[in-house]
Design a binder for these strands. Structure first.
Lengths: 347, 347
DNA sequence: CTGAAAGCGCTTACAG
DNA sequence: CTGAAAGCGCTTACAG
């Protein structure tokens, strides 16, 4: 293996100078720089990152923690974040966790053993952040949940305003003439920290505004963020409440599973049951029928998250909590009940 | 930060003994082991992996290289491989590459800078392996392509027999009465190294066997392994050749995009056009209509790959090239032309 | 069974 | 601008 020592010998300079060239320090003569770089190229030398990181103490890669493997929405953010971080010359590591795992504990362990420069969380349970985040002493960014009100010194957050988006979703279904609306997705837990909780709060607000009841027992089913979860919860919901004409799924992956369930129950979308999703993943644009959905701005989410963590790592910027705009994308999966007559033809 | 030195001081033993306890060396007294472990637990100590790896020379995490971000098939293998590796106590790193990137060059660079214990490639272009694999001196496993005939000392491979599966796919469509069959997916390049090439070879064999022509110009369209790719290539193919009654997509992701394109061209699946996929990803079980597809055994692929790399890293086992069984899963997307009369009702 | 010590490949004051 | 040297936190012969 070629080491910095070999490069020193070959170039005729000391290892100190070689190190300075590698790290772009200014106090090196042009001649030395040229010569050393030449040898590095010749030898195809790559500095040993273990040694480098050991010396520099805290910091290896920026670590991305993805919560929920079957969640296609996170995959798309992950991809973008990865690319942008690489472009900025950062190493990046990825850890996939179960939807219900404790991401903060995992991060804390990694913090102790590998000293990453920072963490980006894709999804997160605020309860865990409240409990265990103290052990983490590097810049972190939480994506798709807000850390507002937590007052944590190392945590920024960027997310869609889930409350407002949930409200807009139900509002839309009501405008389309639906009064018996079911909701699936998220956990039944009352703790206001899970993915989906704030979306639900928004939904309830919309029902309220329109003087509609929301009977959680009859109109809600919890579900994992997966197609299988959506399939089962939609079935349960529609069986226990046959009055429902529209289902709002708290994630597109769930919605896709729900659509299949509805079909298998012998009903059509949107003729018999309307489906509205949340996320705007790629599959929702190709499904049959196309899924109407709340589109989250993944590009912006990724961009803000990366910029934030870089500024905090390199320039010690302060933390931020920010909402990213969303939009309602109309596909083919929601029926307008206000114009029933025009809906004679099937499909 | 607590280091091994602190643990030594606190426990009253030397750092050598502490190190031995951490690494489960046998030559430590029960008493010492107990005491040291106690202190480690008290302090919540995590050994610094940079230092450890620097000492042990070559090896940090096992690195998984995923080729093609939008390929949902790889995601499912990735997930399984990750979990199994973690269960075996291995660190794992993941790198996502573009479908057309040079994965072997990337691995070679990582090899020099980070010295991973080994690589698992999800997807790979044999041409790159021929050219650059020499630079890699750690155990590698290639999944979903065969390394047979390459004679590389560090490379095992596990894959579906793509040739045979491609043959079976076209054979099936022919049995269902289709004679005008189109194929989409993979690259147009003649080099026999890309994903999809062997599948194509199998298809051609099936056409041959049945005395059917295969006019690559009229019956084939290249495509990225993504829904967008499938959408566009299906459109191009069906426009240039209206006789086609069945499309075989070389990946489910492609097939999903193709189905949407067919729908948008005003045709029905499978009434007007049949679609057959390849992979058996989760989405194919939930799509409308359900996708008929060649199901690759991802569990087995993942299991064999992980076992192989572990045995080679730890016990210096020899490399293996093996085919994994596949199965044809009938969904709702292929029409049987032999029984036309029964197909009166729509959907 | 245990400790003292060398050394892994780097970076970075320190001195010149 | 450059070199010699200390030291990052570990592991592992070596000696006892």
């Amino acid at each position: 293996m070629t080491t910095i020592k070999d490069i020193a010998k070959l170039s005729g300079y000391s290892i100190g100078t070689v190190s300075r060239v590698i790290n772009n320090h200014p106090d090196v003569s042009e001649e030395a720089r040229r010569r050393v770089q030449e040898v590095i190229r010749e030898q195809n030398f790559q500095p040993n990152s273990n040694a480098k990181q050991l010396k520099q103490q805290s910091n290896s890669a920026i670590t991305i923690i993805v919560k929920g493997n079957e969640n296609m929405f996170f995959e798309s953010i992950l991809e973008r974040v990865q690319v942008m971080l690489k472009e900025s010359g950062e190493d990046v590591a990825v850890a996939f966790l179960d939807e219900y795992a404790n991401e903060v504990q995992t991060a804390a362990q990694l913090c102790a053993s590998r000293k990453p420069k920072g963490f980006i969380f894709l999804g997160g349970n605020l309860e865990f952040f409240r409990q265990d985040f103290g052990k983490i002493d590097v810049p972190c960014v939480l994506l798709t949940n807000t850390a507002e009100g937590l007052e944590l010194k190392n945590l920024s957050s960027y997310t869609t305003d889930d409350m407002e988006a949930g409200r807009a979703a139900v509002e839309y279904l009501i405008q389309m003439g639906h009064t018996h609306i079911g909701i699936i997705g998220g956990s039944a837990s009352r703790i206001g920290s899970q993915i989906g909780f704030r979306r639900m709060e928004g939904c309830k607000a919309a029902f309220d505004q329109h003087g509609l009841e929301f009977d959680e027992n009859m109109q809600y089913e919890p579900s994992r963020f997966s197609m299988a979860g959506g399939y089962e919860s939609a079935q349960r919901l529609l069986k226990k409440n046959p009055k429902i004409t529209a289902v709002f799924a708290l994630g597109d992956t769930i919605a896709l599973g729900a659509m299949r369930a509805i079909k298998d129950m012998g009903m059509s979308i949107p003729e018999d049951i309307s489906v509205l999703g949340y996320d705007g993943i790629e599959s929702s644009r190709y499904s049959i029928p196309r899924l109407s959905t709340i589109r989250q701005d993944t590009d912006m989410l990724a961009k803000k998250g990366v910029e934030d963590i870089l500024l905090r790592i390199n320039y010690n910027h302060a933390v931020t909590d920010e909402f990213i705009n969303f939009s309602l994308v109309e596909g083919e999966s929601v029926r307008n009940l206000n114009q029933k007559r025009k809906n004679a033809k099937k499909q």
